[in-house]
Amino acid sequence: MHPTPKRSYFLSCLRRGASRRRAKEELFANIQKTINFYNKERERFFEAKSKDSSLQIEKFIKYDSTFITWDTRKLRGGLEKNRAIEFDPNDLRVAVYRPFCKQYLYFNHHLIHSRYCQPDFFPNDTTNNLVICVPGQGGRCDFSVFISNTLLDLNIFESGIAVSYEL
């Protein structure tokens, strides 16, 4: 009897790498599209506001979710202050979206509504740090513990909130 050949994990890793590369390029393109749309709306708004000082931002900006989702504090607030956004490739980071599922994230303070303490835990993509994460009070899932060496989604446990502690 011949022994069963060992399964090669090398090829599956190559396939995953190509898929992650494509995901990074897609995120790069989407973020560029969002930033360009925001900056064009900002310029358009201030040009129109110079002609009509009573112009209200909520009634003026284009609401097109294929380009942007306007949150009140960050994006509309930044636009009202005429704050331009520039793309920073250092903000393309890997994050854990659900336990054991990593994906690319554009971790920029202009576009992420609430980053909480994550910039302290992981100030850049080369920081070697660990956090322990547990479901927050009032969450829907049972008690769990998750340790990560990268950025975490607030809803990692699908419980509405997660609490992270630096180790």
Rank of each mutant, 00 (worst) to 15 (best):
residue 2 H to W: 00
residue 2 H to S: 13
residue 2 H to A: 14
residue 4 T to S: 12
residue 4 T to G: 04
residue 5 P to M: 06
residue 5 P to C: 02
residue 6 K to S: 10
residue 7 R to S: 13
residue 9 Y to L: 10
residue 10 F to R: 14
residue 11 L to H: 11
residue 12 S to K: 15
residue 13 C to Y: 11
residue 13 C to M: 13
residue 17 G to S: 13
residue 18 A to S: 05
residue 18 A to W: 02
residue 20 R to D: 14
residue 23 A to I: 04
residue 23 A to Q: 14
residue 25 E to H: 02
residue 25 E to Y: 02
residue 26 E to C: 06
residue 26 E to F: 05
residue 27 L to C: 03
residue 27 L to K: 03
residue 28 F to L: 12
residue 29 A to E: 01
residue 30 N to Q: 12
residue 30 N to D: 07
residue 30 N to R: 06
residue 31 I to L: 08
residue 32 Q to C: 03
residue 34 T to N: 07
residue 34 T to R: 15
residue 34 T to E: 13
residue 34 T to V: 05
residue 37 F to M: 04
residue 39 N to W: 08
residue 40 K to T: 11
residue 41 E to Q: 14
residue 41 E to M: 13
residue 44 R to M: 04
residue 47 E to P: 05
residue 49 K to S: 06
residue 51 K to C: 14
residue 52 D to Q: 03
residue 53 S to T: 15
residue 53 S to P: 15
residue 55 L to V: 09
residue 56 Q to P: 04
residue 58 E to S: 12
residue 59 K to P: 04
residue 60 F to P: 07
residue 60 F to D: 05
residue 60 F to L: 08
residue 63 Y to T: 03
residue 65 S to P: 00
residue 65 S to H: 12
residue 68 I to L: 15
residue 70 W to H: 06
residue 70 W to Y: 04
residue 71 D to T: 11
residue 74 K to P: 08
residue 74 K to T: 07
residue 76 R to G: 03
residue 78 G to S: 07
residue 78 G to P: 02
residue 78 G to F: 10
residue 82 N to A: 12
residue 83 R to W: 04
residue 83 R to V: 13
residue 84 A to H: 01
residue 85 I to R: 00
residue 86 E to S: 14
residue 88 D to L: 09
residue 88 D to P: 09
residue 88 D to Q: 14
residue 90 N to H: 13
residue 90 N to T: 01
residue 92 L to C: 01
residue 93 R to F: 01
residue 94 V to F: 11
residue 94 V to E: 00
residue 95 A to Y: 01
residue 97 Y to R: 09
residue 97 Y to K: 14
residue 98 R to S: 13
residue 98 R to K: 12
residue 98 R to N: 11
residue 98 R to G: 06
residue 100 F to T: 00
residue 101 C to D: 00
residue 101 C to M: 13
residue 101 C to P: 02
residue 103 Q to G: 09
residue 103 Q to S: 12
residue 103 Q to A: 14
residue 104 Y to E: 03
residue 105 L to Y: 03
residue 105 L to D: 01
residue 105 L to S: 07
residue 106 Y to M: 05
residue 107 F to S: 08
residue 108 N to G: 12
residue 109 H to W: 14
residue 112 I to G: 01
residue 112 I to A: 02
residue 114 S to T: 15
residue 116 Y to V: 11
residue 117 C to W: 09
residue 117 C to M: 09
residue 118 Q to N: 09
residue 118 Q to L: 11
residue 118 Q to K: 05
residue 119 P to Y: 12
residue 120 D to E: 13
residue 120 D to I: 13
residue 121 F to I: 06
residue 122 F to L: 08
residue 122 F to I: 08
residue 123 P to L: 03
residue 124 N to Q: 05
residue 125 D to A: 12
residue 126 T to Q: 12
residue 127 T to W: 06
residue 128 N to C: 10
residue 128 N to A: 13
residue 129 N to T: 14
residue 132 I to H: 10
residue 133 C to T: 15
residue 135 P to L: 03
residue 137 Q to W: 02
residue 138 G to V: 06
residue 138 G to I: 07
residue 140 R to Q: 13
residue 140 R to L: 15
residue 142 D to R: 10
residue 144 S to F: 12
residue 145 V to T: 09
residue 146 F to T: 07
residue 149 N to K: 09
residue 151 L to Y: 05
residue 153 D to V: 08
residue 153 D to Q: 08
residue 155 N to K: 07
residue 155 N to Q: 07
residue 156 I to H: 00
residue 158 E to F: 09
residue 161 I to W: 01
residue 163 V to M: 03
residue 163 V to F: 04
residue 166 E to K: 09
